[in-house]
Design a protein around this nucleic acid. Structure first.
Lengths: 233, 233, 233, 233
DNA sequence: TATGAATGAGGATTCATTCAT
DNA sequence: CATGAATGAATCCTCATTCAT
């Protein structure tokens, strides 16, 4: 019934996913430039012409990988963080847990996004930066809500500074999460929830206290220059 | 006074530095694979054979770049953080300030170290990882000292957990610093000291509080699983 | 009938032989180092990438040439010399005839084996040396049989010397054949059989006489030092 | 008294010989193409510009090597073979002895002449061929004298055949000598005189008998076709 | 649909060779 | 006299990409 003893005829969509799966593996291992289309085709069990026919050029394939993986990551985090109750802290905690779980389960996907895509040509880096922005924007909003505590409310005079500060915090938080994700991959027995809790303990408390006006007091001058830190006792 | 526009004869050491300068620029812009030796040679105002004669293969040149830049970065941070007074907080603050200053002034150097070197072949990534380890180890030690506060002193039963926690914090801190450095480069008027203070405010306070036993309480269960966080009130 | 002058699609095996043919020509003309892959590709009417795809590196291609040509030469000689009657003289004569015929018809093949391959890097020289050994071993055996004539039979005391002598004779014989082959190529009208007969006349008779104990008597001392030559009359 | 601590100032002639010595070593080891001028300069303890100043291009240097070494070889053989008594056999014996001694003592020189020079570009091969001709011509003459024995004298009808036969014999003899020289280098304890005697025993006797009209009788037909061999008994 | 066959373009590397001191 | 500094030109090789079937 199968006249050709060769490979099965699969519907296009299935083949495309096979190819992208293979491409993510290869790109995560070697990076964009060092990856070879031969290896992608071989791992996808497909001939090279088919690869080009379905997905276009190497850069387009890489781009498609980025798009699919970034989507998956954003969805995983978003569905955990957005559709929950209102407490910013808990939303962040759910988001982080989702993130660390995702990285643990989809290592290659995250490597492509975090390590490979950011060091490539501008157009590719921009694409991954856009996905990253979605996440950072969400976090920024969470942080801002948390920093608008009553203790600071009267400080309307400095709204721009607040925006800047929350953006900085969000970037730092995401950067810390990335680094922790990488660290966690190398630590045996480290559970995603535990990693998330580490980060919460580390940063969220700081944010809460800082929302109350406390802050680090630099030795050479008052810390208040860039924000309303209380003077050293 | 310079009758011939032809290249001047320069001593070897000078030319080598020119070449490395050019290589850092090119590698930072394109990454290892996409960088072409032609561009490096052109930017160094030198012929390709001289490049190979003095510095060896492309990989060796990249490696030499990493070594030189990592040295500079480690020195910049180390001399600021290590030879100071004893307060861990202040040492960290000085280190961070030095780091953000360095990144602001040596953008390409940092890009090579942070973005390019980590996504290359194992041998190169390992080299940059070693330099990075030096920094992380120092930070880990600072963090550990800070977490060994009297309030926690009796907890000798959990020394391994303390080590792991301080490592996690150090990784997170360095990751946050990297992300903040990148963010700061895009924010006009952001001074290195201000960025450093942001990070100190964000994390150090959290550490101090955590040292006293406080912690984030996850909604699904007690946070104490991975550390002695106080139960929610 | 061939509307497009573009290259035809040929099966891999055919192309590989085309390539080897071209490579033998080019290597025989210029030697390994001076030969350029561009010329090989052009002569094979093939692009360079195909060359590398099918046959590997320059050294591998050279090696494949050696292997193929050595095989052909050894077969040509072997099938003539080995499967015949028992008389060593006649077997040698058939082998020589086959050899000179082969050289006359496959000039390039022999040049590669005899002139080019022996002056290259060790690994390549070793390869051709192995093929050459096969031939020399066969000849050595023929010579040894011929030298073990009854007239010498009692001389069992000097078996090692006999082995050495027959090896020397075989080397000399093959060297003489090589030189004669080159000479014959430049002499118009010289037939392979004639060349073979010249060599037989020259050496075989000498061997037969020597087997009977005769030998050249050096003016400065007895020739018997390295063999049982009869004293001068 | 030697103001410069650097190398001594040597007269030009001495330096040139140093350079040629080095070049012969390097060329003999790697062949013309694979040899690098850097290695020659280094081994000669001279800077590259001096090399070019004194001896010209790489090809000129190789040519100078060939010329000098061929001269030495021809002289060594010629002075042994030519200025002696009249017996052709003894003159040949002295020539062979000189040749094998030369090869044993000047290995590199002979390798350049025999293996390297013959496989290079036409102009170089031609140069070495000229030197070789000198030797072969001498040998041809010796052989011809020996073949003109009285037993054959009446055969004036075939003078051209005699010339051709003696040339063939000379080529074979020199080829055999080359091959034996190489073989002898690999045999421990083989003395030049012994090697020469082997070759004399092998070939000269054959020549003498052949001069008397004897010859090998090919199985497929009379051997006399190319020369006056006696019919088989 | 699917692929074996084929290639244009470009990259790293090395060499013989020559200035300028 | 002697050399460190410097390069034009070529070579091997690989890769993304496309025909022709």
């Amino acid at each position: 019934m199968d006249p050709q003893p060769g490979r099965k005829r699969l519907p296009r969509k299935v083949r495309e996913q096979q190819m992208l799966d293979a491409a993510v593996q290869v790109f995560s291992r070697h990076g964009f430039h060092a990856a070879s289309m031969d290896e992608v085709a071989e791992r996808a069990q497909v001939s090279k012409p088919l690869l080009y026919l379905y997905l276009g050029s190497k850069e387009e394939i890489f781009s498609a990988c980025i798009a699919r993986e970034a989507d998956r990551l954003v969805n995983a985090i978003g569905s955990a963080a957005l559709n929950r109750d209102d407490d910013p802290a808990d939303r962040l905690w759910h988001g982080l847990t989702a993130f660390f779980s995702y990285v643990a389960e989809h290592r290659a996907s995250w490597v492509v996004l975090y390590q490979q895509a950011r060091s490539q040509s501008d157009s590719l880096a921009a694409q991954v930066a856009r996905s990253r922005s979605e996440i950072i924007d969400t976090v920024t909003e969470l942080v801002r809500q948390s920093m608008e505590s009553p203790a600071r409310g009267g400080d309307g005079s400095n709204y721009a500074a607040l925006r800047r500060e929350s953006a900085a915090v969000a970037h730092a938080l995401v950067g810390a999460a990335d680094a922790l994700a990488e660290w966690a991959l190398a630590v045996p027995g480290e559970q995603p929830e535990a990693t998330a809790r580490r980060l919460m303990n580390m940063m969220w408390i700081g944010l809460e206290r800082r929302a109350k006006g406390e802050g680090y007091h630099a030795p050479d001058g008052p810390a208040g220059t860039d924000g309303p830190a209380a003077p050293r006792p």
